[in-house]
Design a binder for these strands. Structure first.
Lengths: 149, 149
DNA sequence: ACATTTTAGGATAAAAAACTCTTAATAGCG
DNA sequence: CGCTATTAAGAGTTTTTTATCCTAAAATGT
């Protein structure tokens, strides 16, 4: 798993919010129900994004959360870095410290190429693009199967 | 982290063994000391590889572990699958179930391309190649810094 | 002022991953 | 045979990640 589960939840939540163009504040409860993510846990995760100024929140009736800036200016890597940190973009695939062009592991050169592609994908993909894809209806951000309960 | 820490240890251990061309059975203790991995933990991990018939083991004096087949015929993905399973080659980056060409998530197409490259790298890279790289001395499989103790 | 809706945050629990320890089994050697 | 070197196996612990629960604080409408 390249992204933590926490980060997956965060991404999907922000996808959902971004896809609600017109609306202002979306209650976390609604997001949690639509995406089938534990409300309390999601609340916690989104607090991190609010503190990182990626989202803004508003308490009280008609409250909820909203993007802090236009979806065009938020990239996937903003979320991934806020939740999981930058390590996926820097880390050695074998977990070695200071693996770089100077002291490479045997897979460094090959892995670096792939890692850069991941970074490039996450950097260049904005939530505006993803929101459009979702709203065109051909892509989903929910599970097909409900969790076992 | 794309590979679990356990899998990283396994990879490095097999790298080490593969790099000892001439020798037969290498004691796990030696591997654990050279790579600075907990002996008992490494033992556990390598048992999995032995049960998967990637390694063979021999108890008693002059015992140890060795590759079960020539290093040319063991690929990185053999180890990764034995330890972590195949999920990294199949999983959705957002953690959604059944994300494929039929019910894609918004990142499916892009992620699939990258995931296939990872699979390709792991499938095509054999331990013979890596062993050669290690023996030529330009690549390392150990940490530079000792763990905090 | 009060009730309602909502986020914020702490405290805790459950599950998974990483690591440790102890004991058993096996093989070789004197 | 009995000693030693070595892996095998399994129980037990710690740490990290994921998830739940409860109470407080803020905003709104009446």
């Amino acid at each position: 798993m390249i992204l933590s589960k926490t980060c997956d939840y965060a991404m999907r939540a922000v996808f959902y919010i971004a896809a609600q163009k017109e609306r202002k504040f979306i209650p976390i409860r609604e997001v949690s129900e639509k995406l089938d993510i534990s409300f309390h846990f999601l609340t916690k995760i989104l607090q991190v994004l609010t503190r990182a100024h990626i989202l803004v929140s508003f308490k009280g009736p008609n409250g909820g959360i909203a993007l802090a800036c236009p979806a065009e200016s938020i990239s996937l890597s903003d979320i991934s870095k806020a939740i999981d940190g930058s390590k996926i973009y820097e880390e050695c695939i074998l977990g070695l410290d200071q693996c770089g062009d100077e002291n490479p592991c045997p897979l460094h050169n090959e892995w670096k190429r792939i890692r850069d592609q991941i970074q490039n994908l996450f950097d260049k993909t904005t939530f505006a693009e993803v929101a459009e894809k979702i709203n065109c209806g051909e892509f989903r951000i929910t599970n097909l199967l409900k969790k076992n309960k």
